[in-house]
Simulated scan of single mutants.
Amino acid sequence: MGAPQGCVLSPLLFTLLTHDCVTRYECNRIIKFADDSTVIGLVRNGMETASRSEVEHLLGWYDSNNLALNVSKAKELIVDFRISEGAHQPLEIKGVAIIFYEDRDFQGHHYECYSDCGNLQSYVSRCNSIRIDSGCWIIYEHPNYTGYQYFLTKGEYRDYQSWMGFNEKVRSCRMIPTVSTLPYRGSYRVRVYERPEFGGQMMEFTDDCPSVHDRFHYQDIHSCNVLEGYWLFYEHPNYRGRQYFLRPGEYRRYNEWGALTSRIGSFRLIMDCY
């Protein structure tokens, strides 16, 4: 869809095209112009995760709408009001990629993904091998981040057995923002509860837990509150079985983190993945 320059329909068409180009974090803003859009991010306590992840999210929107970002004209402006200037790692656009291949050993049709994608079926019909340039990713068996979850780090996966998959179905993926371009350096805190809706016994953790039963004295976690950091829950002790990725937020029932039952045997924090 297009219109001549200066056409009265141009503003309306542009608004319709970009209506779903919105921020995913409340601390960020996107100012949209036809050829000069801007992402504004507020950084607190040195944490740049939200602003950097917003850029990756915007790149994903470009890809989904068959648009291309002119990286050579993209600029990063930093406004720092601190008395002493802190260290800053330059933003790397399209620096983290996961590549999905339809056949084993990185053969056949492939698709490069740079941000979260809720439905990969538009790009690959199946997935038998994966290559990750850098960072951490969660891949899902079904669209919209559902089904079996698999935590992957930088490396090459020549067949689906190498990521402990059951079949060639990979329908969605999520990039872990903590390592999009800057490793997470903050603290980790999660509260687990014996019952749904944050009821029953509660215990707060700040480190890895190889056995939930040994430390929490229960074999089931019905709800939890991730206060800080990113975590992986496992179905069995010693980090075995089905995996569940949890971002900061409240999970009132176990199905909200993708589980079919409340059984959690262990969990650990997601650290640097480079």
Rank of each mutant, 00 (worst) to 15 (best):
Q107N: 12
H88Y: 10
G108W: 05
F100T: 02
H109Q: 14
I98F: 04
Q107D: 11
F106D: 01
R126K: 15
D103Y: 01
D133V: 03
P90D: 13
F100L: 13
S122R: 14
A97H: 00
C117H: 00
A87E: 13
Y123H: 11
H110A: 10
N128A: 13
C113E: 02
Q121Y: 09
I130M: 08
G118C: 15
D133W: 07
I130C: 05
A97V: 11
Y111H: 02
H88R: 14
F106K: 05
V124A: 08
F106V: 07
K94Y: 05
R104Q: 08
H88A: 12
E92H: 10
F106A: 11
D133K: 11
E92D: 10
Q89I: 15
K94W: 07
P90S: 10
E85P: 07
S125G: 15
D116N: 15
I130T: 09
I130W: 05
I132E: 07
V124Q: 09
Q89H: 10
Q121A: 13
C127F: 07
D133Q: 10
S122A: 12
R104K: 15
I130E: 04
G95N: 07
R104C: 05
G86Q: 15
D116K: 00
C136E: 04
N119W: 08
V96M: 08
L120R: 03
G108P: 09
I98T: 03
D133H: 07
A87R: 14
G95D: 03
E92Y: 04
G118R: 04
E85W: 06
G108Q: 10
E112W: 03
A97E: 11
E102N: 02
D116T: 10
L91F: 11
C117Y: 08
E92L: 11
G95T: 06
E102W: 06
I93C: 03
S122V: 07
V96F: 08
I132R: 08
C136R: 03
P90T: 10
I132W: 12
E112S: 10
R131D: 12
C127R: 01
D116Y: 04
I93F: 00
Y111D: 04
I93T: 10
I93P: 03
I98A: 08
R126D: 15
K94I: 00
G135R: 02
L120S: 02
L91P: 00
G135W: 09
L120I: 02
C136Q: 05
E85I: 12
C117Q: 01
W137Q: 06
E102F: 00
G135H: 04
N119F: 06
G135F: 06
L120F: 02
A97M: 13
H110N: 14
R131I: 08
R104N: 12
C136K: 05
C117M: 11
N128I: 14
V124P: 06
I98S: 00
R126Y: 06
L91T: 03
D133I: 06
C117W: 04
G95V: 02
W137H: 01
Q121E: 14
Y101E: 00
Y101F: 07
A87W: 13
I99K: 04
S125I: 12
Q89T: 10
I132Q: 08
G135Q: 06
Y101R: 03
E102K: 08
H88F: 12
C113F: 07
A97C: 12
A97Q: 11
G118H: 12
